[in-house]
Design a protein around this nucleic acid. Sequence first.
DNA 1: AGCCAGGTTTAAT
DNA 2: ATTAAACATGGC
Length: 311
Amino acid sequence: MVKIKCIKTEPSTIFRIKPTSPYNFDLTVGIFSKFLGEVVDIFYINSAYRRLLNIAGNYVFVSVKSVGNVDNPELYVEVYPEDIQPDENLIKQKLEHILSTNIALEGFYSMMCEDKVLSEITNRLYALRPPRTESFYEALVIAIIEQQIALPIAVMNKGYLVRKYGKKILFDGKEYYAFPAPYALANTKVEDLRKLRLSRRKAEYIIELSTKIINGELDLAKINSLQNQEIIDILTKIRGIGKWTAEYAIVRGLGRLDSLPANDVALRKVVSTLYYGGKEVSEDDVRKLLDKWGKYKGFAAFYLLNMGRLK
DNA sequence: AGCCAGGTTTAAT
DNA sequence: ATTAAACATGGC
């Protein structure tokens, strides 16, 4: 039997975050509510973004509300620690990372004015930022799950995995889950993960990756000090992580906006529709088109992908 | 109805 | 070298 912890309904700490302007909170965290079956990052429109975080080994439940507006954004954060209260600054940094509150958009927006397609998208998605995962590990596992599969299915698959192996709490009568830690997944068997509707291959990839992390073969702590290409070289030596997976994880997990998962099927489709009149495009075509945006090419890809979802 | 969905590796041609 | 197969379901 799993013991369920109920979180107290009174926050132990309250603080505020001031994102750089412009910042559209609903649009940004709204990315999380697009798919049924999302169980880690919880957001209902006009409500709070809620998540169970793992901060330096301690579980902390956070609830984030917008108390500002797009041009004068401000976030109101309530913290409910399970046991030990971690340093408030660590929690704040983690949330600023996840919610991408510190990105400067001006450079990107002024660059996009030159492109008809992107300037229209930018108008519709104004002040949207790419949310990030809590950890790089989470980004890698999600990327593996999302390989060659429809996104709603991938989100459901992630949900099964999280419900089975993630830390669970109850808050206000609802269940919330932290993303599983590497040791939790390293100790599973392929057959266990197969039952969660993961393919045999993906189950192997996730277990092998998690094992490399807990035995120190792969040190994710030092990843962020490396260049994109260095990270790709290291990661693609690991079974199950190809170029797309590495590039995708660099965007989702590290929040680097200059990493371009050019071989992404959805991205290729959007680029084909919006720039090539529906003619099929290759990974190289996508790179050729987006490379000119330099350090913002990943951001441009993010906007294009979300445009594809708006349709 | 059927086909395609945010790849990558391995094993069989 | 090239190719097929592997995870499942909502939308078109």
